[in-house]
Amino acid sequence: MMYEFKVGWCPFCDQGWVEIVKNQMTEELLLYCNECNTNWKTYDDFKKDDIPAYFRQYEEVEFEVDCEAEFSFNIIKPTYQEIINIGWDKYIFKD
């Protein structure tokens, strides 16, 4: 299923879904826009759309990347259990 773990529409680019993803290198879950690669460490940060998240894009991730393609490559789909474990299952859109 495409966008299985979507939590909302990106407030920054207004073109993509924000999904719960896993950083393959740190094993942390984060929220990530599939269009502009903006990411948020917490759901509360995502809901604060008054701050342009793009300017925090790379400082919120605990590893350095040289380009968007490399960053996207390190993003994988988490398991539903991993999402439940941090309490983010309640944010997932139910279609």
Rank of each mutant, 00 (worst) to 15 (best):
T38K: 00
K77P: 00
A53H: 03
N85K: 05
F71M: 06
C36P: 04
I86N: 02
R56M: 08
N37I: 08
N37M: 10
W88F: 05
P78D: 13
C36V: 12
T38M: 06
F55W: 05
F71C: 01
E82F: 08
D50I: 15
N74H: 11
D49H: 08
T79P: 07
P52I: 15
I83C: 08
C36D: 11
E70I: 01
C67E: 07
Y54E: 15
T42C: 00
V61G: 04
N39M: 13
C36G: 07
C67H: 07
I51G: 02
N74R: 06
E62P: 00
E82D: 15
F63C: 07
E59H: 01
V61Q: 09
F73R: 11
R56F: 10
E68H: 10
G87V: 08
K77V: 12
E62D: 15
P78M: 08
A69Y: 11
F46Y: 11
I51M: 04
I86W: 03
N39P: 11
D45G: 12
A69T: 06
V61F: 09
T79A: 09
F73D: 12
I83P: 05
G87P: 02
W40C: 14
E64S: 06
S72K: 12
E62S: 08
N74C: 05
I84C: 11
N39A: 15
W40T: 14
T79E: 11
N39G: 14
D45K: 13
F71G: 01
T79V: 07
D50Q: 13
D89I: 05
G87Q: 01
D50Y: 15
V65I: 09
F63N: 11
P78F: 04
E60I: 11
S72W: 12
D49E: 08
F73T: 02
E68K: 05
A69M: 05
D89M: 04
Y54D: 15
S72F: 09
Q57Y: 01
E60F: 08
I76V: 09
D89N: 06
F63G: 04
E68M: 05
D66T: 06
S72R: 14
S72H: 12
G87H: 01
E68Q: 07
E70L: 01
F63S: 09
E60V: 11
K77I: 13
K41L: 09
D49I: 09
E70Y: 02
N85M: 08
F71N: 02
I84H: 00
E82M: 13
Y43A: 02
F55C: 12
D49P: 02
C36N: 07
D49Y: 13
Y43S: 02
Y54K: 12
E64P: 00
Y80Q: 15
K48R: 14
C67V: 03
R56S: 10
F71H: 04
Q57W: 02
R56V: 04
D49V: 07
E70V: 01
T38W: 00
W40R: 10
E62Q: 09
D45I: 10
K48C: 14
I76R: 03
N39I: 12
